[in-house]
Amino acid sequence: PEEVRRLVEELYRKGVSPEQVKKILKKQGIDEREIEKVLRRIG
């Protein structure tokens, strides 16, 4: 979803590592598979 992409990109631009991005967003209840999809697209 758009909102997940925005959150991931925001953290990524701040220099947060992909592993940390995953941890942070998982705590917020976001599906890990969604996060990984976005990270793959960015990375």
Score class of each variant (00 low, 15 high):
G43D: 15
R5A: 14
V4K: 01
E34V: 13
R5V: 14
K26Y: 07
E10H: 10
E34K: 03
I42A: 04
R6V: 12
L11D: 00
D31Q: 05
S17A: 10
I42D: 06
I30V: 09
L11Y: 04
G43N: 14
R13E: 06
K37P: 02
V16A: 09
G15Y: 03
V4P: 02
K22M: 14
P18D: 09
V16S: 08
K37F: 05
Q20E: 08
I35Q: 00
G15Q: 04
V38A: 08
P1V: 09
Q20Y: 09
E3D: 10
L39K: 00
Y12N: 03
E10P: 01
E34H: 04
S17L: 08
E2S: 11
E32W: 04
E36F: 02
V38E: 15
R41D: 15
L11C: 01
L7V: 06
E32N: 05
V38R: 01
S17T: 12
R5E: 15
I24M: 09
G43R: 13
K23Y: 11
Q20P: 00
R5P: 04
L7Y: 06
E19P: 08
I30M: 14
Q20N: 11
L7M: 11
E2N: 11
V16E: 05
R40A: 14
E2D: 12
I35F: 02
L25G: 02
V4I: 13
S17I: 07
L11T: 01
I42Q: 04
V21L: 13
L25A: 03
E19V: 10
K23S: 13
K27D: 10
Q20F: 10
E34L: 14
K27C: 05
V38Q: 11
R33S: 11
K22I: 12
R5S: 14
L7R: 12
L7H: 05
V8L: 02
V16Y: 09
K26D: 03
R41T: 15
P18E: 13
S17D: 05
R6T: 08
E10A: 11
L25M: 04
L11W: 05
Y12M: 12
D31M: 05
R33C: 05
G29L: 03
K37E: 15
I24A: 06
